[in-house]
Design a protein around this nucleic acid. Structure first.
Length: 261
DNA sequence: CTGCAGGCCCTTA
DNA sequence: TAAGGGCCTGCA
């Protein structure tokens, strides 16, 4: 168990911020995360955090995964300087939200599945996809012999064709995921949108969660609702530059979880 | 048992 | 460029 004190970090908030489909609460103050072919048990009480792995593994894998190299207090301060009360409330409420650095291929698959879909069903589909691979997320090669019907049988519905095509594109090197990282944000979005099943929203999710392009600002129905009700339909996210995506996470989490409690 | 959920694609005008 | 209908399916 590797123990550490962490500020601006709340695993429960991260799990509920909608960016990850493979974090599950397993008990009081306990969660299990599956990422990068590893399973990690996490304990958190206040700022006391425990990670069920060696220090070496934590520093090698999970430090980066949790985006611990980024100072979120600076982002919060910047938000406070705007004087925008809605954003300030959102940041105060979601004090422990962070943007995880997740695997690009997993994000491509997950967000193709996510369209016009609910969270429970998305998680169940992803679980069924991973089940034959001992819960590790399968590579495109792993899935290359899957047919559209196979994916339909896993519950993807009309999205089965999109995933089938994407698997083939990766296997045939028609798209090389490793090359996406260096693409400028605008080019990246245009490029991703060429593929069937990837529109503006999904492309921005892939850019933000899979490539940590933090200028990405995915607008889904929740974000649209905020923009319409709090900002009269107009929200200039570009003013936040590279912080837009992180601010999006605060807004999204506040909208989804803020009023319940 | 309806209605819909973290959109996208295609067709019209 | 904008607007609108159809789409799989299981969960609320």
């Amino acid at each position: 168990m590797y123990a550490i004190e962490l500020d601006d970090f709340d695993i429960e908030q991260i799990a509920q911020s909608g960016q990850c489909f493979r974090i599950n609460k397993t008990g009081d103050n306990r969660w299990t995360i599956i990422a990068f072919s590893r399973k990690l048990n996490v304990f958190q009480f206040g700022t006391h955090c425990g990670f069920d792995c060696s220090e070496d593994e934590f520093l090698e894998i999970w430090y980066d995964y949790f985006d611990l190299q980024t100072d979120y207090s600076k982002i919060k301060q910047m938000v406070k300087n705007t004087g925008d009360n809605y954003l300030i409330n959102a940041v105060n409420f979601g004090y422990g939200v962070r943007v995880l650095r997740q695997d690009i291929w997993e994000m491509v698959v997950s967000y193709i599945i996510s369209q016009q879909n609910n969270i429970t069903r998305i998680k169940n589909i992803i679980e069924r996809i991973c089940q034959p691979f001992s819960d590790k997320f399968p590579t495109a090669i792993d899935l290359q012999n899957y047919t559209i019907l196979d994916f339909q049988n896993l519950g993807l519905g009309y999205r089965a064709k999109f995933l089938f095509e994407m698997v083939q594109n990766v296997v045939n090197k028609k798209i090389i995921l490793e090359n996406l990282e260096t693409m400028p944000y605008d080019d990246l979005i245009q490029y991703l949108k060429q593929f069937n099943g990837i529109g503006d929203k999904v492309a921005n999710c892939i850019a933000l969660f899979g490539l940590h392009k933090t200028e990405a600002f995915p607008i889904d129905v929740w974000m649209r609702r905020i923009i319409n009700t709090k900002y009269s339909g107009n929200f200039d996210y570009k003013q936040f530059g590279k912080f837009a995506g992180i601010i999006q996470q605060y807004m999204f989490f506040y909208e989804r979880c803020g009023m319940k409690k």
